[in-house]
């Protein structure tokens, strides 16, 4: 099924707010927990207590420093990254077995683990580092957009959202349908100028990132400063007298 659908009914994905993400890694571990117990093989950890632990994770939080021009203070941005469920997903088309596919109904890109030969080519084809081979099961793992949560009738309605979104303490992650221009995610992207990662790769990622709002903008602003009521204590006490009169 490595042909991509020409169009999907819905375009489900995430909006990640880089202005709000505090880099707590909660989404990383909630994802690990949910996906270990659910879809496919558990996300394993090799050398778990040893010198070089390597586990599979479907979502990882990077951090970057940015040095603005003109010597303004450097900034630090926490940057969670999982599969962007690309419209033109190269990871799907390269897959020789059809294990990788993009769902027609909602655009979610999935790996059917029982078909996966673990060749790793899809991970090579993904620009974003969104696919990881499980160190134990040797099949390709990737973000499922919690396909086993978002429609799950065994979960209360309010919980039918990805594990990472549900857990994010800062509310920096939003889940919704990008095909619907009025959805929460489309609105956020429109209002805050949501960005696409590596557009030059031509993958047309569905997930979007909200850029950090301008920071440290007022450091050198001189006014409006406070007007002193008096320059000295004595004058101040005089002012105080009048002020107390008015109370």
């Amino acid at each position: 099924m490595t042909e991509l659908p020409t169009q999907t009914d819905r375009k489900l994905g995430l909006v990640i707010d880089l202005d709000t993400c505090v880099g707590c890694h909660a989404c990383v571990i909630a994802c690990k927990g949910w996906n270990t117990e659910n879809y496919g093989a558990p996300l394993a950890d090799a050398d778990a207590y040893g010198a070089q632990p390597v586990g599979s994770f479907l979502n990882r939080v990077h951090s970057y420093e940015i040095q603005p021009p003109d010597n303004a203070p450097a900034q630090l941005i926490h940057f969670p990254k999982s599969c962007l469920h690309c419209e033109d997903a190269p990871c799907v088309t390269v897959c020789p077995t059809g294990a990788s596919y993009k769902r027609v109904e909602d655009g979610i890109v999935l790996v059917n683990e029982s078909d996966c030969i673990g060749c790793g080519l899809c991970a090579w084809a993904c620009p974003y580092g969104a696919r990881e081979m499980d160190p134990s099961e040797k099949v390709m793992k990737k973000c499922t957009l919690c396909v086993d949560r978002i429609y799950n009738e065994n979960l209360p309605e309010e919980d039918r959202e990805p594990a990472c979104v549900r857990t994010c303490p800062a509310g920096a992650r939003h889940f919704g349908d990008f095909a619907d221009p009025d959805s929460n995610v489309s609105t956020l992207v429109a209002e805050r100028g949501g960005i696409e990662l590596m557009p030059e790769q031509g993958t047309k990622p569905v997930n979007r990132y909200l850029p950090p709002r301008p920071k440290d903008v007022e450091i050198d602003v001189l006014g409006p400063l406070l007007t002193p009521v008096a320059q000295e204590p004595r004058g101040f006490l005089g002012w105080l007298d009048k002020a107390l009169e008015r109370l």
Binding site: L18, H62, S63, Y64, E65, I66, Q67, P68, P69, A72, A74, Q75, L76, I77, F79, I195, E196, L197, M198, P199, E200, Y209, P211, P212
Partner: peptide, 14 residues
């Protein structure tokens, strides 16, 4: 382009 943060300044991995 990878981070989309280039408009702010020079990006380095922390």
């Amino acid at each position: 382009s990878a981070t989309g943060l280039g408009d702010i300044g020079t990006v380095t991995a922390f």
